[in-house]
Design a protein around this nucleic acid. Structure first.
Length: 256
DNA sequence: CCAGACGTTGTT
DNA sequence: GTCTGG
DNA sequence: CCAGACGTTGTT
DNA sequence: GTCTGG
C-alpha cells in the first residue's frame, strides 16, 4: 500500500516531468507526507490543460456526512476501484497524478518485519506519479474540500519481499490516458516496475516530528544513536533526523 | 419498506 | 447518491 | 502509515 | 484492543 511518501523535487523539475501549466508555489522538501495532509496533484484543468492543485490525502466521497471518513480512504484497490461506491465516480471522471519521489512500506514479511519503514526511490532519484483519484466534498456549512486517494495493487515478486500491496506508479507514457476521462484507465493499473526502484531501510518515523532523513543504509550501529531534539534547527537542503520515544509503539510491540 | 454502510491493510 | 441487509 | 485517545455534564 | 485525527 502507500501510507507515507516523500516529495522533495523542485517545482520546476516537476513541471518538466508532468507538463502542468499555470501558477505553482515553491514547494518545501517533504520527507514525510501523511494522510489528511495537503499535497500537490496534477489534474486536468477546465481549460483542458494540466494544472497543479493542493488536495487533501484521503478521499472524502461526495455523499459523506463528515470529512473524517477520508482518513480511511487513503488507498483504493485497483481490483475494485471501478465498482466501490466511494471511488467509482472519481475513477470515471476525476483521475489525477500524485507526484512523489519516494514512498514508504512497513515490512510485514518474515525476517524483515519491523516497525522500521523501507523507502523506495527511483534509482535515478527522479520524480514519479502515483495513480490518483480526486473528489469534491461540500460541507453543509459551505466551502469545499478537495481530496484524493492513491490506487494500490498487488506487489510484484521483488517488492512483495517487503509488503503485499504497493501503490500504482504510472509509466510516463500513460499520464495522458490516465488524465483523460474518456480513456480506458483500468489497463494502466499495474505494479510499479521493480527495476526502477531501490529500497533502503529508514528511520522510524513520527507524524508530529515531520522531518526525517533521506535514504540511509540499514542501521547496524551497536552504540545508541544520538538523536536530535524535535526542535533541532535544520540546515536548508539537508533534512535532519528527528525521532522520539513512542510509548504506544513499545506497548504494541510487547502486547499480544 | 427503512437503516446503515460506503475502505484498506494486516494479524492471529 | 446508491447498494446491501434486515 | 503512525500517534494518541479511549468521557460526560454543565458552565461561560 | 480499536478508533480517530494528522
Amino acid at each position: 500500500m502507500c501510507g507515507r511518501f516523500a516529495l522533495t523535487t523542485p517545482i520546476e523539475v516537476l513541471r518538466q516531468a508532468f507538463g502542468f501549466v499555470g501558477p505553482a508555489p515553491n514547494l518545501p522538501a517533504r520527507w514525510n507526507i501523511a494522510p489528511t495532509q495537503s499535497t500537490p496533484v496534477i489534474r486536468r484543468a477546465e481549460s483542458g490543460g494540466r494544472e497543479l492543485a493542493a488536495l487533501r490525502w484521503g478521499l472524502v466521497p461526495y455523499w459523506a456526512d463528515s470529512p473524517s471518513i477520508g482518513a480511511k480512504m487513503i488507498n483504493a484497490r485497483a481490483e475494485t476501484v471501478a465498482e466501490k461506491p466511494a471511488f467509482r465516480a472519481a475513477f470515471k471522471a476525476r483521475r489525477c497524478l500524485v507526484p512523489a519521489d519516494g514512498f514508504y512500506e512497513w515490512p510485514t514479511r518474515g525476517d524483515l518485519a519491523s516497525r522500521q519503514p523501507v523507502l523506495f526511490r527511483r534509482r535515478d532519484g527522479g520524480p514519479f506519479a502515483f495513480a490518483g483519484l480526486w473528489e469534491r466534498w461540500v460541507p453543509a456549512a459551505g466551502g469545499l474540500i478537495e481530496s484524493f486517494a492513491i490506487v494500490s495493487t498487488a506487489a510484484n515478486e521483488i517488492m512483495a519481499q517487503y509488503h503485499e500491496r504497493v501503490p500504482v506508479v504510472l509509466a510516463p507514457g500513460d499520464y495522458a490516458a490516465w488524465l483523460d476521462p474518456a480513456a480506458d484507465a483500468r489497463a494502466l493499473l499495474k505494479a510499479p516496475p521493480s527495476d526502477w526502484f531501490s529500497a533502503a531501510a529508514f528511520q522510524p518515523m513520527s507524524t508530529t516530528c515531520g522531518m526525517t532523513t533521506p535514504a540511509v543504509s540499514p542501521r547496524r550501529s551497536t552504540s545508541p544513536r544520538r538523536r536530535r531534539s524535535r526542535h533541532a534547527s535544520r540546515a536548508p537542503g539537508r533534512p535532519t533526523t528527528v525521532s522520539r520515544a513512542c510509548s504506544n509503539a513499545r506497548k504494541r510491540r510487547a502486547a499480544p
